[in-house]
Nucleic acid binder design. Structure first.
Length: 219
DNA sequence: ACCCAGGGTCATA
DNA sequence: TATGACCATGGG
């Protein structure tokens, strides 16, 4: 039986540990989470370098900078005008927020979702990889993989899927570590699988339109 | 010349 | 609630 946990084991065996999130601080994780919306990570790295060069990788500096100057540093990520505003919206919340280790995760999640520009996946990236909370991140790859394995239906909402995964993985001990590695492995699988098809399964290439997957009618 | 990327918001029906 | 337009650079 293919269960979410079995699939995790296969991914781990195939790709080994990923040690996410690739960042030097929790704040950098949060910035990256916003900048990588529908954007490849290589572009995000360029923007992070720009921010560092201008000593602008801090809440304080980002809020102080003009929209135009910030957008210019964010140019490589695309959507730079939108993302400049989103980043500022986030920083304005982060600066005044007073959340501690004790803050309830659902409460923190609702606060994140109330920020314009932070949707469910970005919020969960931040919760898992910056705040170390046990939330399972759902992204386009996760949907495609489990849809093509015929374990989920593609008309499910984000919350339905997150709840499904968290229920299926209820019994694991260190949820933060597992959810962390799981999402990272799915992304790694997406990057690697089209180049070297290896036996996780025959039909789960995660490109949006994979001829192989199409031919096998696993959509 | 196309397709895609570690999404989200807003207007419309 | 469910689609569709829009945001925009860079790599394959």
């Amino acid at each position: 039986m293919l269960t979410p946990y079995r699939i995790f084991q296969k991914l781990l065996k195939q790709y080994d540990y990923q040690y996410w999130w690739p960042a030097n601080s929790p704040f950098e994780v949060m910035v990256g989470a916003i900048l990588t919306q529908n954007t490849s990570w290589t572009n995000v790295e360029k923007a992070i370098i720009n921010l560092n060069k201008n000593k602008a990788l801090s809440c304080h500096k980002i809020i102080k900078m003009s929209d135009e100057n910030l957008a210019e540093l964010l140019r490589p990520v695309g959507y730079f005008n939108v993302k400049a505003r989103r980043l500022k919206n986030f920083c304005n919340w982060y600066q005044t927020s007073n959340n501690s280790e004790q803050t309830n995760t659902d409460c923190l999640r609702r606060e994140l979702l109330s920020i314009n520009g932070v949707g469910p996946e970005t919020a969960d990236d931040i919760l898992l990889y910056a705040f170390r909370r046990p939330v399972f991140v759902i992204d386009a790859y996760t949907r495609r993989l489990f849809s093509r394995l015929e374990l989920i239906e593609d008309n499910k909402s984000y919350e339905e899927l997150r709840s499904w995964f968290e229920t299926k993985l209820k019994r694991v001990k260190n949820k933060v570590a597992l959810f962390n590695e799981y999402h990272a492995l799915i992304v790694q699988h997406a990057k690697a699988h089209c180049r070297a098809r290896k036996p996780l399964c025959e039909t789960c290439c995660l490109k949006r339109s994979c001829a192989y997957a199409k031919a096998n009618r696993k959509f």
